[in-house]
Nucleic acid binder design. Structure first.
Length: 265
DNA sequence: CCGGTCAACTTGGAAC
DNA sequence: GTTCCAAGTTGACCGG
């Protein structure tokens, strides 16, 4: 942009960003080790998103009844998990205890005769109650430790793996939503700054014209010119034309639209 | 039929 | 090596 022109006049524009730190998870789980990446990207604009900030003040009673220390369903790691269709998932479900398989059938409304082919992959739809409880749990912990996962799974009549997947997907959706919000916010900032830039360019042109019309003031050091950020006018322009168009400033006056709520967002 | 949603999956990386 | 998670993908399901 043509900020060199601006410098030639002695006017200085400064742009800045407010650095806001996204609230971080206080979960007891491992997730707390990572910073919330929602705002990391480029601009550190802070937003009060619905996502992670409002989560977890207290512990849900997910732990109730999790006295069992053995993860009955503990699959191998996702890496070593049976790879999907060529008998994978269905076979894995078969390995569950008969009680849990029964539970699974009821909760996921998946028929026992799903194995109608090696590629069978039935869509589980969570019930309203299951979704509500998962949501409630998510509000308090966006991540689960194994015990919480286990307890929640029992409570919901789901497999721990299903609970785990639901939380993973839920986190992803939250992040996506937050990204969209951030995007909208930045778009608005961009529009505001564009307008601001346009206005300043216009004022610059006016000042240049004024400078040519009044060579007397050319003797003044350019760096002493200043502009009032609140009224967004330079003395002598418009209705203040009768007064001295310039004022003396000890320092160049930086105007930061991000820290001035009246200008930016 | 098509696009959106979402459970389930794979892959890769980090932490231990 | 194991476990967990994020990111990206797949495929079933559903409503318009």
């Amino acid at each position: 942009m043509g900020f060199d022109d601006v410098c030639n006049t002695g006017l200085v524009l400064g742009l800045g960003l407010t650095a806001a730190t996204a609230a971080q998870e206080s979960s007891t789980s491992k997730a707390a080790k990572k910073p919330c990446s929602n705002f990391e990207p480029s601009l550190t604009l802070g937003l009060s998103g619905e996502s992670y900030q409002q989560i977890f003040p207290k512990k849900i009673d997910v732990n109730k009844g999790c006295d069992e220390s053995v993860d009955l369903y503990r699959q191998a790691s996702p890496h070593s998990a049976v790879s999907s269709f060529s008998s994978g998932r269905i076979k894995r479900e078969r390995d569950l205890s008969s009680e849990e398989v029964e539970v699974e059938r009821v909760s996921s409304r998946v028929s026992d005769e799903d194995e109608d082919g090696p590629n069978a992959r039935k869509k589980l739809r969570l019930t309203k109650e299951q979704s509500a409880l998962l949501e409630e749990s998510f509000k308090q912990h966006s991540t689960l430790n194994p015990k919480q996962k286990q307890a929640l799974a029992r409570q919901l009549n789901l497999r721990p793996r299903q609970v785990e997947v639901w939380f993973q997907n839920r986190r992803a959706r939250t992040k996506l939503k937050q990204t969209e919000v951030d995007c909208e916010f930045l778009k608005k900032c961009c529009e505001t700054l564009t307008d601001e830039n346009r206005r300043l360019q216009k004022e610059l042109q006016e000042l240049k014209a004024l400078k040519l019309a009044q060579p007397l003031y050319m003797h003044m050091p350019a760096a002493t010119l200043t502009m009032c950020p609140s009224c967004e006018r330079i003395g002598g322009v418009g209705e203040n034309a009768s007064k001295s168009p310039f004022s003396m400033a000890p320092k160049p006056h930086f105007y930061n639209p991000f820290t001035n709520p009246s200008a930016a967002c």
